[in-house]
Simulated assay, not measured.
Amino acid sequence: MRKVTYVLKVGGAALTDKNTGRSFVSEVSDYVAADIRKGTRIIVVHGAGYGAHRFVRSRGMRRAADNQADWARLRRNVSKITATMIDRFIAYGHAAIELSVPSMVRTSSGRITEFNLYPVKAYLDMGFVPIMHSDAPPDSKYGVSVLSGDDIAVYLANMLGAKALIFGIDIDGIRSSDGRILKAVRKQNIGKLYTWDVNDVTGGMKRKLAEIGKLRAGTSAYIISLRKRGSLSKVLYGKGAGTKIY
């Protein structure tokens, strides 16, 4: 029997502090790598971090390829996060491997129209941990456009029949309007939830919840803190953590 598949989205909010710019990439990478048992069938998609969002805004890069050097610089900087993550995974005994989103994906107006899943499936079946990041694939309308890691993660979860899609951020889950962390929410109720601004170019928590609403029946979503060791392992191995959306 084939093992169940998990998709983990490591959010930019977990990787960098949006107010100070402080990086938590090494710490979060360690926590994630330590929490995954060897042999777990999991795909990791990570965000770009607050610095990249600020760069995109400052250069007006959302939907055009007018400045190729800026796009190249941005992608290079985000790839440094991937490299750190892979180094930490390997140190913990996981065969992590980077997959290039622009090599597999095409978009139109910023939405996925094609996704060659063969490399993802092949590496998963061989026991690797595929890692990819929010990116700027070729776009039939804009030349290139920013593709959110959330979009990538939801697409993969749906197409691969994942058991769960896990969003890692900087706090323990979804806050209610009075500041409490909600333990569980039904998918049909996510439109009623209080959300907060995380000041990123891919839509923040409100858009994340909208993407969760597109998950196929049978796939749950969790929103957890990746700034704490152990949160991910609780979700992967049956104890639960953060906010579950089902």
Rank of each mutant, 00 (worst) to 15 (best):
S23E: 07
I166M: 12
V144Q: 07
K121R: 08
L226R: 05
D197S: 11
G93N: 09
L99R: 05
R111C: 12
G21N: 06
V44R: 02
A33F: 09
I245W: 05
D170C: 10
L160H: 00
A52L: 05
N77K: 09
F24K: 09
A95K: 15
V105R: 03
A52F: 01
K121L: 10
V105M: 00
G213V: 06
I169S: 09
G39V: 06
L160N: 03
G49M: 01
S225V: 02
R76F: 05
V235G: 09
V28C: 00
V146D: 07
R73S: 12
V44K: 06
D87Q: 05
H94S: 15
V235W: 00
G173W: 14
V101Y: 00
H53D: 14
M159A: 13
T84E: 15
A52K: 00
A14C: 05
Y142N: 10
A52M: 03
T107H: 08
T40R: 13
G93T: 10
I42A: 11
K244C: 15
G191S: 13
G240M: 13
A136F: 11
D70Q: 04
S177G: 02
K208P: 12
A210L: 02
Y6L: 14
H133P: 02
S177F: 01
T107Y: 02
L74C: 01
L117E: 05
I90L: 13
G51E: 06
E114S: 13
K38A: 08
H133C: 09
I174W: 00
A122C: 10
T219P: 09
D170R: 05
G60L: 02
I223K: 12
V56C: 01
E98S: 06
G238A: 11
T107P: 04
H53R: 07
R106I: 14
T16V: 02
S140T: 08
K192T: 05
V144D: 05
